[in-house]
Amino acid sequence: MGDPVPVSVVALDPVLEAGTKSTLLTCPDLSLTVPGEEPRVVVMIVDRVGPPELDVLRTTRDASSRPDVVLVASELAPSEALHAIAVGARGLLRRREAEAARLARAVLAAARGDCTLPPDLLDRLLEHSGTRGTSFGDARDGWAAAGLSDRERSVLRMVADGHETNEIAQELCYSPRTVTTVVHDITQRFRLRNRAHAVAYALRAGLL
């Protein structure tokens, strides 16, 4: 086992911040940052996802250590989720669903560079993608022209739900090497940084 992932919490409500920190401390793979320590992941707690919250998310991502952000909101509409992902969120949870195990899973996935979404929200995003090009900016022409195969879509859906390579391989009856190759091919084809970047832009372009 490696060193615990250093995590910090951002919340306007100090009681909510304290409760979230207590929740995170129940996971031995996570540690709360101390003054002067840079977090690898920031858990950001908000009521809604509007321009001010997105500005805070963007500022957090632009810090020198480039921490990944898990956003926990009271409610998450598909449009809000897409904006948050586009700005740099690597995990999305509704506050009522952010119990210890699920929150820890989202934080650890973000630390690996993966993107985690609630399954029902992912389904709504996939349905919402049919209206792309109005609220979320133009779809990426390169993505739209090349498209994704059924296999690539299946793998990216499971990546978006936070599954690891071995879990995806078992569920889809592929070898772990095949899953790794699929993700690598996607990131290379579209010049993306990692799995999280692939999920974010696939959703934004409406290809999932």
Results as ranks from 00 to 15, higher is better:
7 V>M: 02
8 S>T: 13
9 V>H: 01
9 V>S: 00
11 A>Y: 00
12 L>D: 13
15 V>K: 07
18 A>C: 06
19 G>S: 09
19 G>L: 05
19 G>Y: 04
21 K>P: 05
21 K>V: 07
23 T>E: 05
23 T>L: 09
24 L>G: 03
25 L>R: 13
27 C>G: 08
27 C>Q: 09
28 P>H: 08
30 L>P: 09
31 S>M: 10
32 L>G: 02
35 P>D: 12
35 P>L: 03
38 E>A: 12
39 P>M: 02
39 P>S: 01
40 R>Y: 06
44 M>R: 00
44 M>N: 00
45 I>C: 12
46 V>W: 02
47 D>P: 07
47 D>F: 03
50 G>N: 11
51 P>I: 11
51 P>A: 10
51 P>N: 09
56 V>F: 01
56 V>S: 01
57 L>C: 00
58 R>M: 04
60 T>V: 08
64 S>G: 11
64 S>Q: 15
65 S>N: 12
67 P>R: 02
68 D>S: 14
69 V>Y: 00
69 V>Q: 00
71 L>V: 12
73 A>C: 11
73 A>H: 09
75 E>T: 14
76 L>Q: 04
78 P>G: 04
79 S>V: 10
79 S>P: 06
80 E>I: 08
81 A>M: 02
84 A>E: 08
84 A>N: 08
88 G>D: 00
89 A>P: 04
90 R>A: 04
91 G>N: 05
92 L>P: 08
92 L>H: 04
94 R>T: 12
94 R>D: 04
94 R>F: 10
96 R>L: 08
98 A>L: 00
100 A>T: 15
101 A>K: 03
102 R>E: 15
102 R>H: 12
106 A>P: 03
106 A>H: 01
107 V>H: 01
108 L>H: 14
109 A>E: 09
110 A>K: 06
110 A>M: 08
112 R>L: 15
112 R>M: 15
113 G>R: 02
115 C>P: 06
115 C>G: 07
115 C>L: 14
116 T>P: 01
117 L>A: 03
119 P>W: 05
123 D>A: 13
123 D>S: 12
125 L>I: 08
126 L>G: 13
129 S>I: 08
130 G>V: 14
132 R>W: 06
135 S>W: 13
140 R>V: 12
141 D>Q: 14
142 G>M: 10
142 G>R: 14
143 W>R: 08
144 A>I: 12
147 G>P: 14
147 G>T: 14
148 L>E: 06
150 D>C: 13
150 D>V: 15
150 D>L: 15
151 R>K: 14
152 E>C: 05
153 R>S: 03
155 V>N: 15
157 R>C: 09
158 M>Q: 10
158 M>D: 07
159 V>E: 04
161 D>N: 15
162 G>P: 05
164 E>I: 07
164 E>L: 09
165 T>V: 15
165 T>G: 05
165 T>S: 04
166 N>I: 14
167 E>Q: 06
168 I>Q: 03
170 Q>A: 10
173 C>L: 07
174 Y>K: 12
178 T>Y: 03
183 V>A: 05
183 V>P: 14
186 I>T: 02
186 I>A: 01
189 R>N: 07
190 F>H: 03
190 F>I: 10
193 R>F: 06
199 V>F: 00
200 A>W: 03
203 L>P: 02
206 G>C: 01
206 G>V: 11
207 L>C: 11
